[in-house]
Amino acid sequence: MHEMGIVLHLAKTLDETAKEEHLSKIGSVTLQVGEVSGILTDYFVECWDYFKPRHPILKDSTLILETIPAVTWCDNCKRTYETVKYGRECPYCHSGETWLLKGNECIIKQIEAEEEEPDEASETDEPSSSKTE
């Protein structure tokens, strides 16, 4: 259920953005997912596909996933290494004093979206407060 929860939070964050930016439709959502974020991307895509048609603003959107590689820092020998390949123990000095530098995130990088049509006022010649010319 972890993935579904994340999809719900993502949708809520996108709703707020859509309101602030006056968007009518979201075309694509680019997410950056860390290699060790604990998100299973296959499940995530399934949850997204299930949820999408039920959420008008996202109906026709595509989800683009980018992976952020996980990198660990070793406090002992002051080097970095690939987390997924070597795990918690430093492959150079075998110290356990290591910290994850990145690879834990789940970030909305960007969205592509259509803006709301300006008010009908812009099609007629009525003066309005919005800048139409």
Partner: peptide, 8 residues
Amino acid sequence: IELKETVT
């Protein structure tokens, strides 16, 4: 639109 926000 660049967001660079966490999903939460």
